[in-house]
């Protein structure tokens, strides 16, 4: 009797534990590689560290004060924001044109659709190898085409644009795909009735396609800002933050402080600052979303 009663009970117990067991592996990894390092980064931003990045001594807000009062830090933040703005505007413009061109599915439209998105699949390091060849001063491709002799990546006015150009090229694909999906979701009959009412292509784009796809457009804008903040490889591979720090962004500064200079506490302050910056833009996104975006 008692054994018969016991069995369903342990079974029920097991069933109650099951969902936790299913979540456990994912949670363990999150704790180890997201939550723990995040909290540790916050804590270390109030401490001193040794050369290998481990805690030595609490110093309160000293690190924060030291970094936030430095002009060089704010100029890095300024460059980060400037690059994000340039990347955002150019990426959006090109991706928008590509998406409008590719919205209508015709025979073989896959051909150009594939090309417009292709750089998305290209890694930054081989791409950088090609762009270094394009930008190099001695018989570089760009100098060949323009008949110039400019060292694009080591001169101050051009370096930032050269880095942005590569980033934009690499980011257009993802934006294009999101916009394309949005534009293709616009109901066909809506466009047709507008056409019957005499709306030209530009009017249809302005008054129907763009408003109807506003969730995607909105999403892509903020996605581009965030991915620009996180762009590291291009800067590491093309300019190392130079010339004269003119392409040094926050993420590169973090890398430089931690890995090259062994100043982990400085890197931690900057990493948390980067987090707050991205977080701020996410908040703005959520706050604006309900006001700007049109949901069907």
């Amino acid at each position: 009797m008692s054994r018969q009663k016991e069995l369903p009970l342990t079974k029920r117990k097991r069933a109650r534990a099951l969902p936790y067991l299913l979540i456990a592996p994912a949670m363990a990894l999150f704790v180890m590689f997201t939550f723990y390092p995040f909290i540790r980064t916050i804590l270390l931003s109030f401490a001193l560290t040794n050369k290998s990045g481990n805690f030595t001594k609490w110093v309160g807000v000293d690190n924060w004060v030291r970094i936030l009062t430095k002009n060089s830090f704010w100029s890095v933040v300024g460059i980060t924001l400037k690059m994000a703005a340039v990347n955002l505007i150019c990426t959006m413009l090109v991706a928008m044109v590509f998406a409008l061109l590719a919205t209508k599915k015709v025979k073989f439209s896959k051909a150009y659709q594939t090309m417009y998105a292709l750089p998305m699949a290209i890694a930054s390091s081989p791409a950088a190898a090609i762009f270094l060849f394009i930008y190099r001063q001695k018989n570089g491709l760009l100098n060949n085409i323009l008949g110039t002799n400019i060292s694009w990546l080591t001169e101050k006015p051009t370096a930032i644009w050269a880095v942005c150009a590569m980033t934009i090229w690499m980011h257009i694909g993802v934006s294009f795909i999101f916009l394309l999906v949005g534009f293709r979701n616009v109901p066909e009959d809506l466009l047709e009735s507008a056409w019957l009412d005499g709306a030209g292509p530009m009017q249809r784009i302005r008054h129907i396609i763009l408003p109807m796809a506003s969730p995607q457009i909105f999403f892509v804008v903020f996605m581009n800002i965030a991915s620009s903040f996180k762009t590291f490889a291009q800067i590491k591979l093309l300019t190392q933050g130079g010339p004269a720090n003119s392409t040094k962004t926050l993420i590169y500064y973090i890398y430089e402080n931690a890995i090259i200079n062994g100043r982990f506490e400085t890197a931690c302050v900057q990493a948390i600052f980067l987090f707050l910056l991205i977080f701020l833009f996410t908040r703005i996104q959520f706050a604006l979303e309900n006001k700007v975006v049109h949901y069907q």
Binding site: Y36, P37, N54, F232, A258, F264, C268, A271, T282
Partner: peptide, 19 residues
Amino acid sequence: TMMIPGEVVVITNYVTIQN
């Protein structure tokens, strides 16, 4: 976890892996 970009914790994760 989706709000915490990998780039923010990459340095600390590096220290963990090193330790």
